[in-house]
């Protein structure tokens, strides 16, 4: 009974190799799913605004479908459902000496497809937020569609896209815990199997909670630095020190929060 402090501290300060490997898996899964999801999101986000109606329809269908299915269901569907129906079975792949398990691949793909649908909406909104006058100015200077997309629309949309995208990644870091259900040995799955043998369920769950909190905290700092860079044209005195940049993001001034650009 009670809280086993010595056990808790030992797990927290010296989690062991197995836990660190699982942590690496959690982070890798989130990063890969994010990158893949971003690719999907940019393609589908632009596709939603295509001049070509069938492309618009396909992209809208994707967003509608995926946003209507729970991630957990999606992951199980990819890993077990497809295999059960005999459509597709993930198998282990070794790339550059690193083996990616079948369940890991299914998790990355499932999370990416889920994330992609949400990112597509964020990207679409970002593109639509670019003012018409900016595009007209670019056209009047003789820029072609590709040139003005790359040099004007994308950078300006990025400014709008990054904050909600960072928010999404924060969410994704924790959503990776769902991959435990299809057998990916990430930190939550490891915690569960350890608590089955040690019965220190509560202590271990607090440790894993603190681990997720640490991950999102690190991400918060990184996001703060990215946003400070993206907003460098918005204020007179630039935050110069690392701390000031992070602070600029975490505690925006009232007037800075009010002015659009």
């Amino acid at each position: 009974m009670g809280f086993d402090w010595p056990f808790f501290w030992s797990r927290l300060t010296d989690p062991g190799d197995l836990y660190m490997i699982a942590l690496g898996r959690t982070v890798l899964m989130a990063v890969l799913a994010m990158l893949l999801g971003l690719v999907i999101g940019v393609l589908v986000g632009f596709g939603r605004l295509s001049k070509f109606a069938p492309i618009r329809a396909v992209c809208a269908f994707y967003v509608w479908l995926i946003r209507g299915i729970p991630v957990l269901v999606l992951l199980v569907l990819f890993f077990s459902g497809l295999a059960a129906a005999g459509f597709f079975r993930f198998s282990d792949i070794t790339l550059f000496g690193i083996t990616m398990s079948a369940s890991f691949q299914a998790a990355v793909l499932g999370l990416a497809i889920h994330e992609g649908a949400y990112m597509a909406e964020i990207v679409r909104n970002g593109i639509q937020a670019v003012q018409r006058g900016q595009i007209e100015a670019a056209k009047s200077l003789g820029m072609g569609t590709f040139q003005l997309t790359r040099r004007i629309i994308l950078p300006q949309a990025t400014r709008v896209i990054v904050p909600p995208l960072g928010n999404d990644f924060n969410h994704l870091l924790k959503t990776t815990s769902l991959a435990s259900v299809i057998g990916v040995q990430e930190i939550f799955q490891l915690t569960e199997s350890m608590s089955a043998t040690t019965f220190k369920t509560f202590e271990l769950l607090i440790v894993v909670s603190i681990t997720y909190l640490a991950l999102t905290t690190v991400w918060n700092v990184i996001q703060g630095l990215i946003e400070a860079r993206l907003r460098r044209h918005e204020r007179d005195e630039q935050p110069t020190t690392l701390f000031a940049k992070i602070g600029y993001y975490l505690w925006p001034r009232g007037d800075a929060a009010m002015e659009r650009r």
Binding site: Q131, G133, A137, Q156, H233
Partner: peptide
């Protein structure tokens, strides 16, 4: 569109709302 883009090169335009690219100096 490619031809229209080329035709615009020799014609400069100044807008009521300036429309400077705000992410560039």
């Amino acid at each position: 569109n490619r031809r229209i883009v080329a035709q615009r090169r020799n014609i400069g335009m100044v807008f009521q709302q300036f429309n400077l690219f705000w992410h560039m100096t």
